[in-house]
């Protein structure tokens, strides 16, 4: 697991049923591209988050395949429909097998 990985997610606390809301996510991660060399000239191996998903009450909102060209501390902004009250679940998948999760609840009404 990359050190000190911290997710940061913006989701409104409340929405109307059926409303479309905007979600922003950030996570601290070096996204080591595999293109860089250390000071001894050795290639620093690739180590990135390779996939991000967002689900609401188990149903998919977005599923993003991430490549080394994504910037350090990856950021996403996207829209989601909120059919009813429930939980957004955000999941980041690291090359090293680590999984980082964050859950945000939304009330309806």
């Amino acid at each position: 697991m990359a050190e000190g990985v911290t997710p940061r997610v913006k989701v409104p606390k409340k929405a109307d049923a059926g409303e479309v809301i905007t979600i922003k996510t950030l996570i601290s991660h070096p996204m080591e591209s595999g293109q860089r060399k250390d000071s001894d000239g050795n290639v620093i191996p690739q180590s990135i988050i390779n996939r991000f998903t967002c689900e609401f009450n188990g149903e998919n909102v977005i599923d993003i395949k991430m490549e080394p060209a994504m910037s350090t501390n990856p950021y996403f902004e996207f829209d989601a429909k909120v059919p009813e009250a429930g939980d957004f679940k955000f999941t980041w998948y690291d090359d090293d097998g680590s999984i980082y999760e964050e859950v945000k609840s939304v009330a309806v009404g």
Binding site: I62, I64, K65, E67, S71, Y75, E77, F78, P83
Partner: peptide, 24 residues
Amino acid sequence: PTPPVGTFKFGPLAGSRSASTRIR
């Protein structure tokens, strides 16, 4: 040096078919 950046797949609850990110 490697062209792929990412692929965005939209699910049933996508609120729009759009997304923003930051790339190298």
